[in-house]
Design a protein around this nucleic acid. Structure first.
Lengths: 196, 196
DNA sequence: GTGAATTAATTGACGCGTCAATCAAGAAAC
DNA sequence: GTTTCTTGATTGACGCGTCAATTAATTCAC
């Protein structure tokens, strides 16, 4: 059979173009034609591979979430001790590859997409659950019963920082964003007579 | 002239319908016809009064922000002392009228709107600036130099709680949301040897 | 190895639905 | 009887998804 490796390549290009277009416009109101043009293919091909515009968006979400998940695993593997694990989870959220204009814009719009697309909702819910779970796990040894509450707080704060970054005109300030959340973390540690 | 008080009335109805439709669909992808139908008028009338769909959205934003602003002023007026003022600012964000499904959904979508509409961006920027300013003012006497950082953290946390609430299927939990933010506030207070 | 056969990759054109905005005209108020 | 209020009908643009057809790659018979 005539099986070249074109399909996975094209799929990846289209997914990449989708994220960039969402980043450029800041909206989900991008046409399949725009995405296809940026990917250097025809809109018909995009439909051929993904079937629908919604499916293209879902693929883009999966890509972003997968990248994030992979970095999380890497960071956790390298972290020694509960506190380091919690800090690693925070830092990953503001890593070079995740805390970028297009990715931030994509996240914001994925939240909107989740309002109408069950599949998008499911994906975001998985992300949230996993982050909460990871945080609780890391915090339990140092914060005990307060672990759950602090995990929820840190999770919401990370999302909030993303949201606010989406409004800024300037380039994302990874260091500042991470410092803000880490500062919050330290305040909670200090209070709970944390692990110092 | 035939100037009954119809115009302001219709405008208010249309604005209200806009917020409800955004809440129902969770998106800005609502048609003028849908909004008009819910307001009990024709789509032509909506255009007659507002001129464009964008203008309708802006009016809806102004409404939400104005309501929030009014409650903030009321709460600040009633609060005695720096700490009470800060707590009042937090509580207002989760008040009965602000922390509702439709309003939360509207906020989320206003953030998206701000990506493409300068006017929407301006309005959101004013909101953020004012909240930061109010918080810094209240915190300065008890936290000194740390006031700015804690204000930024609290602001982002509030936005993050809104964002996460937008994903939930259940009715908004005002008490829980306020408790989460207030809990973090206390942690910062305890750390900075705050005002007790 | 060459040519026919088979399958994948890719596209241009376009139908069909949708929607924002306009317009011309009727109803109501004063 | 003029002005505001209101609408149904219309339109022009646009975008998703489809389809028939073309091109490129790979296999296989010999």
């Amino acid at each position: 059979m005539a099986r070249s490796a074109a399909e996975p390549l094209r799929r990846a290009e289209i997914v990449q173009a989708t994220i960039q277009e969402i980043g450029r416009t800041g909206t989900l109101e991008v046409t399949v034609a725009q995405i296809a043009r940026r990917a250097g293919v025809s809109s018909a091909l995009a439909h051929h591979y993904f079937g629908s515009k919604e499916a293209i968006f879902v693929a883009a979400m999966r890509h972003v979430l997968a990248l994030y998940g992979a970095e999380v695993r890497g960071a956790l593997a390298a972290a020694e001790g509960p506190r380091a694990r919690a800090e690693a989870l925070i830092r990953v959220s503001f890593s070079q590859s995740n805390f970028r204009r297009e990715v931030i814009a994509a996240w914001l719009n994925f939240y909107v997409l989740a309002q109408t697309m069950p599949e998008a909702w499911r994906l975001l819910d998985i992300y949230r659950r996993r982050l909460d779970s990871n945080l609780r796990h890391a915090l339990r040894p140092i914060l005990g019963d307060r672990a759950a509450a602090v995990a929820a707080s840190l999770g919401a704060l990370i999302d909030g920082v993303y949201l606010r970054e989406a409004l800024k005109r300037t380039a994302p300030d990874r260091r500042g964003a991470a410092a803000l959340v880490l500062g919050h973390f330290e305040a909670e540690l200090a209070r709970g007579d944390g692990g110092r």
